[in-house]
């Protein structure tokens, strides 16, 4: 490695160019998000069963995990919601998480105040492990618990 001058020179050039494409701000946000989520998960450990979960958080306090076992999960102020959220700024049926095979998508249900995912206002997002949705004063954190075959 690094013995061939011309090869190394080309790689160094590629490196310096590709580094310009990396968004340091985004990397810092991801880092903070992962640390934050894992801090919450230390306070309230993830259920041991494999699967997808929503961790409901209010003002930095983890409240409970909801297992995403159904194909459609309703989230809102209505007590009929699968994940009920008691907040005046949350619509009765605020958003929905739909499962297609092992892919989970959250969609805003034309709610009055909308939702953010990882700090950005969004209508819909295919969820990734560690994503943080905010509706009203609550955070919904998507976490996956699955074994990694190594």
């Amino acid at each position: 490695m690094f013995e061939n001058k011309y090869d190394t020179s080309a790689k160094l050039h590629t490196t310096l160019i590709s580094n310009k494409e990396i968004n340091e701000t985004h990397l810092a946000k991801i880092k903070n998000r992962v640390i934050y989520v894992n801090t919450l998960m230390k306070q309230l450990p993830l259920p041991s069963e494999n699967g997808a979960y929503i961790l409901l958080v209010k003002e930095g306090n983890p409240l409970s995990y909801f297992s995403l076992v159904k194909d459609s999960i309703s989230i809102g102020r209505s007590q009929d919601s699968y994940i009920p959220v008691d907040d005046g700024n949350v619509s009765r049926l605020h958003c929905v998480i739909e499962r297609n095979n092992s892919i989970f998508t959250i969609s805003d249900n034309e709610s009055k105040n909308g939702m953010t995912v990882n700090g950005e206002k969004m209508q819909s997002r295919i969820l990734c492990d560690g994503d943080i949705m905010r509706i009203g004063s609550y955070e919904l954190i998507f976490v996956l618990n699955k074994n990694l075959t190594m």
């Binding site: 590709s18 985004h26 880092k31 998000r33 992962v34 894992n38 990734c128 492990d129 996956l144 990694l148």
Partner: peptide, 30 residues
């Protein structure tokens, strides 16, 4: 972090997708 992004880009991921990969890798590692 930047190495993971760089690798994901080499594998054909868009910028956005490579950032998702980084997040999930860091989560998994935890």
């Amino acid at each position: 972090a930047s190495m993971i992004i760089n690798f994901a880009r080499k594998r054909g991921c868009s910028k956005e997708l490579s950032e998702d990969v980084l997040q999930e890798t860091a989560m998994a590692l935890f």
